[in-house]
Amino acid sequence: MLLLSKFKISGHSMEPLFLHGDKILTTNIFYLFKSPQINDIVVFKDITNVFVKRITKIINDKYFVSGDNQNDSLDSKDFGAISKSQILGKFIYKL
């Protein structure tokens, strides 16, 4: 697993922070030493896709995530809470 990874945003659910086509850099370094926190923007994988969302709630090591653009986002209501093992990295830089 790379310490730094680059992702290209596809979709609008993280607007206005990320627009469709934006590129971001993430790192998994922080999560080697501490757990993800509320408000962290994380890239994570589910069975079929890689998603980018913000952590909004943490209950019993389950991370509830949501897009910033509430009118236009899939969130934990739709695919359930995620676990730390699904998180690929934390957003650190927008190109």
Binding site: S5, G11, S13
Partner: peptide
């Protein structure tokens, strides 16, 4: 950074299915 790192797509869709 753009040149160095390989790119992966991260979905931020309007995905109420």
């Amino acid at each position: 950074i753009d040149k160095i790192f390989k790119e992966t797509k991260a979905c931020a869709h309007c995905d109420i299915p």
